[in-house]
Design a binder for these strands. Structure first.
Length: 510
RNA sequence: GGGGCGGUAGCUCAAUGGUAGAGCAUUGCCCUUUUAAGGCAAGGGUUCUGGGUUCGAGUCCCAGCCGCCUCACCA
């Protein structure tokens, strides 16, 4: 028998002994008068003398997280919903049967207690138990009480243990919930309604990514898990739902990293009669408001930096390339050279020469695409030189049309679109644009994508006839944006890995 | 997929190629205001798996599995 088994065996025997006391092994309910948090909030300021005079009665419940026996008495800490309260148990107060139960309790067991509040000599607010109620047995030993559960894989696989013994892990998910709540309130206040669109789609559109494929038997239909809700949300705007948002999962069949999980949560929203500059302005407010609600302020410590969400810095993509251009690669490309295929390409070649050399080791080379459309190399250079430098919340705007098949072109620059991405902490956090609403132009864009697909780009977008039909009924001028909830949560909880903000991240099965 | 690091008791971690240890947890005894309670004693190991080198392998070598980091990929 393994040690694990023998420990479990001991505990099963104790559970049987508890049954022998005439108690239910798995009782149905316990009505507490105060949660552990409420006790601290309500009585935390009361003096020992005041408590002794009043002896406030409480019924509490929770998991035993510490046990300190003292002969015919003992102390315990009960943990309930993230808060703790101390319990003082003495034989003459709980009676013979109660003390027999006390002796059969293990760390991790769930119990209730009935008694009155007092302060111990050391001043800790404590429940003086007069009755104990057994609620459920922990048959397997909890991780160590002081260091908690450190093994990263175990923390993800057995998140319930992580949440039980590592308070910071719990804090992350409490903050995540607060983030969602704040965002929903902000959208409601702006007149948005929350909607749900298909997770299973006959065409995986709205983004450039490899999808997961599944199959519906009755319809004998191949289906894709969505990579984005975009095209459905815009159908809703066509239908007169002028302000819609959705918070839900997207699925992308791609790599796993500290910033990528195959399923991740996206907030995506559209507002009619608006454009990308309106959304950039509102994004700053939305991020600042959420950061303040979650962390208490708009300045957020993230890894080695302090992020200031009260500001949203702005640079065009072309300015960003020039701003972060490595000196060793010679003069930065001029604004008019970005967007000119030949000039871009020669800039990229110049950059690649230093990227592969020793002094440019921080830089990685970009793929030189022959016959690239205008702006393609500019976008690649932006990602290579600027993206990870963008620590403070920054909107990069005006993207190449060639990499933005669903965005509306700028009036004065036909090769560039009204699109922005927000970066913070060196990560892409959001992506928004003025929506392309000309069905003829949209068809042309889809066809450009199909052309790329034929040339081997498996992530080029697919032509969606049904979406084009919808657009022919008239999509008002509209702006839309997506914000990565997991990454935003990483920033707000100072988490280095996306797995720390997803309760059950994808792992290889044991 | 490449590179680096790691996998030892339920948990957190030690251990020059020479008898696998500690703390917590567990078990027994003592202890009625402790709080990482304390004291005395005890039990608990396929050192990730499989080969190899060696008189002898947790330790060295090879292969594999798993994880983390990183690069690539991923707008």
């Amino acid at each position: 028998m393994s040690l694990d088994e023998s420990l479990a065996q001991q505990r099963r025997e104790k559970l049987e002994a508890i049954r022998q006391l005439g108690l239910a092994a798995y009782p149905h309910r316990f009505s507490f008068t105060h949660s552990a948090a409420q006790i601290a909030a309500q009585f935390g300021g009361e003096s020992a003398a005041a408590l002794e005079a009043a002896r406030p009665r409480v019924k509490v419940a929770g998991r035993l997280m510490a046990l300190r026996g003292h002969g015919k008495a003992g102390f315990a800490h009960l943990q309930q919903d993230g808060a703790r309260v101390q319990l003082y148990v003495r034989a003459d107060a709980v009676g013979e049967a109660g003390f027999a139960l006390w002796k059969l309790l293990d760390l991790g067991d769930l119990i209730g207690a009935d008694g009155y509040l007092f302060r111990t000599r050391t001043g800790e607010l404590t429940v003086h138990a007069e009755r104990l109620e057994f609620l459920a047995k922990d048959l397997l030993p909890l991780p160590e009480k002081w260091h908690g559960l450190q093994d990263v894989e175990a923390r993800y696989r057995q998140r319930y243990l992580d949440l039980t013994v590592n308070p910071p892990a719990r804090q992350v998910f409490v903050r995540r919930a607060r983030m969602m709540e704040t965002l929903r309130q902000a959208f409601a206040a702006r007149g948005y309604i929350e909607v749900e669109t298909p997770m299973m789609q006959p065409l995986a559109g709205g983004a450039a990514a490899r999808p997961f494929v599944t199959h519906h038997h009755t319809l004998d239909l191949p289906l894709y898990l969505r990579i984005a809700p975009e095209l459905y949300l815009k159908r809703l705007v066509i239908g007169g739902l002028d302000r819609v948002y959705e918070i839900n999962r997207n699925f992308r069949n791609e790599g796993i990293s500290t910033r990528h999980n195959p399923e991740f949560t996206m907030l995506e929203f559209y507002e009619a009669y608006s454009d990308y500059s309106v959304l950039m302005d509102w994004s700053r407010e939305l991020l600042a408001e959420t950061a303040a609600a979650v962390t208490g302020g708009t300045t957020v410590a993230y890894q080695t930096h302090e992020l200031d969400f009260s500001q949203l810095w702005r640079l065009t993509l072309r300015e960003a390339v020039r701003e972060y251009w490595p000196q060793q690669a010679g003069p930065a490309p001029l604004p008019h050279e970005l967007g000119d295929p030949a000039s871009e390409r020669s800039a990229a070649e110049r950059y690649n020469r230093i990227a592969s050399s020793a002094e440019g080791s921080r830089y990685r080379p970009v793929a030189i695409v022959p016959d690239a459309a205008p702006g393609v190399m500019a976008a690649a250079l932006f990602e290579a030189v600027a993206e990870e430098e963008l620590r403070q919340p920054t909107a990069i705007y005006d993207f190449p049309l060639a990499v933005s098949p669903l965005a509306k072109a700028k009036d004065d620059e036909p090769d560039w679109v009204e699109r922005f991405e927000i970066f913070a902490g060196g990560m892409e956090l959001a992506n928004g644009y003025s929506e392309l609403n000309d069905p003829v132009e949209q068809r042309r864009r889809f066809e450009m994508q199909m052309h790329q697909r034929e040339r081997g780009d498996t992530e080029a977008q697919v032509l969606d006839e049904d979406y084009l039909r919808a657009m022919q009924y008239g999509l008002p001028p509209t702006a839309g944006e997506g914000i990565g909830m997991d990454r935003f949560c990483m920033l707000l909880t100072n988490s280095a890995s996306i797995r720390d903000v997803i309760l059950f991240p994808l792992l290889r099965p044991e």
